[in-house]
Simulated assay, not measured.
Amino acid sequence: MVRMSDQDQETRASAERQLCGLVNGMAQRIAEHLRLRAARLGLTAPQATALRELSGPMTISELAERMSCEPSNATFVVDKLEKQGLVERRPHPADRRAKWLVLTPEGTDLRGRLLELLGEDSPLGGLSRDEQAALQGLLQRAIRPESRSS
């Protein structure tokens, strides 16, 4: 195994530090964008995230995975959305033990308004579709090292 020189290690560490800073900065901008748009609709950021991710019927576990949180946290958010009349729990068609989360007509309308607001001045809006796809691919490779080509 070839060992990197101290200079090469420092150069690599500096580049990684800068890249991590950019990724963190983008994540903060996206979170702030979501929070501000959610507030305009009387929602919290987690509620808006849940509505954004509820693109069709799904279980709490599926929603939690999409929200990048624990199922107990997703359940708390869904409970609030259910009390607001935006989400219903229905029997899962294939699993008697599970419930499906389904948007009500009001929830569907609010989700549509949310998606419109999220499209306004989006932090990623300055990137073309091809650039967004390239960024997505690079981030997926960074997050899932097993998907890197050998």
Results as ranks from 00 to 15, higher is better:
Thr75Ile: 02
Thr75Asn: 08
Thr75Cys: 07
Thr75Pro: 00
Thr75His: 10
Phe76Asp: 07
Phe76Met: 12
Val77Tyr: 04
Val78Phe: 03
Val78Tyr: 02
Val78Glu: 06
Asp79Ser: 02
Asp79Phe: 01
Asp79Trp: 01
Lys80Ile: 05
Lys80Met: 09
Lys80Ser: 13
Leu81Glu: 03
Glu82His: 05
Glu82Met: 03
Glu82Gly: 03
Lys83Pro: 00
Gly85His: 09
Gly85Lys: 04
Gly85Ser: 10
Gly85Ala: 08
Gly85Cys: 08
Leu86Ser: 05
Leu86Pro: 01
Val87Ala: 01
Val87Cys: 02
Val87Glu: 00
Glu88Gln: 05
Glu88Arg: 11
Arg89Tyr: 03
Arg89Gly: 05
Arg89Pro: 00
Arg90Pro: 00
Arg90Asp: 06
Arg90Glu: 10
Pro91Met: 09
His92Met: 02
His92Glu: 05
His92Gly: 04
His92Val: 04
His92Leu: 04
Pro93Cys: 04
Pro93Leu: 14
Ala94Lys: 10
Asp95Asn: 15
Asp95His: 15
Asp95Val: 15
Arg96Ser: 13
Arg96His: 12
Arg96Asn: 08
Arg97Lys: 06
Arg97Gln: 10
Arg97His: 07
Arg97Thr: 08
Ala98Phe: 02
Ala98His: 10
Ala98Glu: 15
Ala98Asn: 11
Ala98Leu: 15
Ala98Cys: 10
Lys99Ser: 15
Lys99Ala: 14
Trp100Ser: 15
Leu101Asp: 04
Val102Leu: 08
Val102Ser: 08
Val102Arg: 14
Val102His: 03
Leu103Gly: 03
Thr104Gln: 10
Thr104Tyr: 06
Pro105His: 02
Pro105Thr: 06
Pro105Glu: 13
Pro105Lys: 06
Glu106Cys: 05
Glu106Ser: 07
Glu106Trp: 01
Gly107Arg: 10
Gly107Lys: 04
Gly107Trp: 03
Gly107Asn: 10
Gly107Leu: 05
Gly107Tyr: 01
Thr108His: 09
Thr108Ser: 15
Thr108Asn: 08
Thr108Phe: 06
Asp109Asn: 13
Asp109Met: 13
Asp109His: 11
Asp109Tyr: 11
Leu110Arg: 13
Leu110Ala: 10
Arg111Asn: 13
Arg111Ala: 14
Arg111Gln: 15
Gly112Asn: 09
Gly112Met: 09
Arg113His: 12
Arg113Asp: 12
Leu114Asn: 09
Leu114Pro: 06
Leu114Tyr: 10
Leu115Lys: 08
Leu115Tyr: 01
Leu115Glu: 14
Glu116Asp: 11
Glu116Trp: 07
Glu116Arg: 11
Glu116Gln: 10
Glu116Asn: 10
Glu116His: 13
Leu117Ile: 02
Leu118Thr: 12
Leu118Ile: 12
